[in-house]
Computed example of a mutant assay.
Amino acid sequence: MSNGERVVLALGGAGTVGSGLVKGLLDRGFKVAVVSRDKNKLEKLRDFVSPSTKGNLTTLVGDVGSEEEAEEVKQALLKSVGKITDVVSSLGFSWWQGGPPHTQPLKELHWVIETLLFSTFVSWKTFFPLVRDDPNCTYTFITGGAGEKLLMPGTGFLTVGSAGTLAFCQILREEYAEVPCKLNQVKINTGVGTPERMGPGYLNHVELGEAVATLVERRNKSHTVFNINCPADLKTVICNDKGAL
Rank of each mutant, 00 (worst) to 15 (best):
N189E: 03
L183N: 02
T115N: 15
S162I: 08
Q185T: 15
K74H: 04
L60N: 14
A232L: 15
L77E: 00
E217S: 13
Q75L: 13
N40G: 12
G55N: 09
T59M: 03
A213Y: 15
Q104T: 01
L42F: 05
E114K: 13
A146L: 07
F127V: 02
V49M: 05
K107T: 12
N3E: 10
D241I: 13
G99Y: 01
G12T: 07
L158Q: 12
K182V: 03
N229C: 15
D63V: 06
E178T: 08
K54A: 05
A10P: 06
T165R: 07
T16A: 13
T85K: 00
L117S: 15
V34I: 07
P200C: 10
Q185Y: 06
T194Q: 08
W95L: 11
A70F: 03
V7Q: 14
T159R: 15
G18M: 06
V225D: 04
E174Q: 12
I84M: 02
D241Y: 13
L45Q: 03
W111C: 15
H205G: 04
V179G: 02
L117R: 15
Y202T: 13
K107N: 09
S90D: 10
W111N: 13
G243L: 11
N204I: 05
S52E: 10
G164Y: 07
M198G: 04
T143S: 02
H110T: 11
V216W: 15
R28M: 02
E196G: 05
S94T: 11
S50K: 08
N3K: 09
T140D: 13
N189I: 01
E69M: 03
M198S: 07
G18D: 06
G144N: 02
L166N: 10
E148C: 10
T115M: 10
E72Y: 06
V8Y: 07
T59D: 01
P231C: 08
L57M: 14
E210W: 12
G82Y: 04
N136G: 07
H223K: 08
H223L: 14
D47E: 14
A213Q: 10
T126Q: 03
S36N: 04
L26V: 05
N220D: 15
D86E: 00
I238K: 02
A211C: 00
D134T: 00
L57V: 11
T214W: 09
H205E: 05
S52Q: 06
T155S: 07
E114R: 08
T236W: 03
P195D: 12
L150G: 01
T140S: 15
D134P: 00
G147K: 01
Q75D: 09
T58C: 14
S162M: 15
V212P: 11
F226L: 08
E72Q: 11
K39H: 05
